[in-house]
Amino acid sequence: MGFVETFFNWNVIVSSFPLLLSGLRITLLLGTVSIVAGLMLGLFIALTRIYAVRPFRIFAKIYTDVFRSIPLLVLLIVVYYALPFVGLRLSPFMSAAVALTLVSAAYTAEIFRAGIEAIPYGQFEASQALGLSYRHMMVDVILPQATRIVIPPLTNNCINVIKDTALASVVAMPDLLKQATQAQALEANPTPLIVAALMYVALLWPLVILVGRLEKRFRRGDR
């Protein structure tokens, strides 16, 4: 067999494409769920880390440190294979979503914290002097400014989460990678793997370019 028939076999592409698309759907769903949940949990942890009373602050710091230290693959396997021993049995999708969210939240929390701490103290004082409540100070003054700072690193984190969804294939979740390896076994041909790889790149390349643009734009100080 020649190079094209081996790696870009048209018949294999056609026959495996539905499977790969269903995998892509799951990958996207898992990525979206984990990113959104990770953002919310991460923001909550960041605010806890900065503003809560001391025991909670310490807890938030331990959380971010632990979940940035643990390899995602290890966490995923622990959630999927170890938790059933204490009666907590999660589906492959849930296991992956939980593991990805926990880790993403830790990184997100650090990004938000850096963003909030980059806001000059005078912004807090001006808000307080005007009589704004804590909630309005955060919602109207601090977070909008922090958001500008954190958008490039958060986008970067999204890219990482989507990439890391591929790890979920080890807990038998039918994501893009899993479907590709299955199709490859079925067809006895590596074309599905190549197509899957191209799909990942097609999905993430625009985001990578976006990060670069955002970083440049925010560096210039435009609004």
């Binding site: 000059p120 005078g122 004082e125 001006a126 002097a129 003054v141 909008p144 400014q145 609004r223």
Partner: peptide, 11 residues
């Protein structure tokens, strides 16, 4: 209150 460094909301 009016501050030395203005502290307007830049956004």
């Amino acid at each position: 209150m009016v501050f030395q460094s203005f502290n307007l909301f830049p956004h």
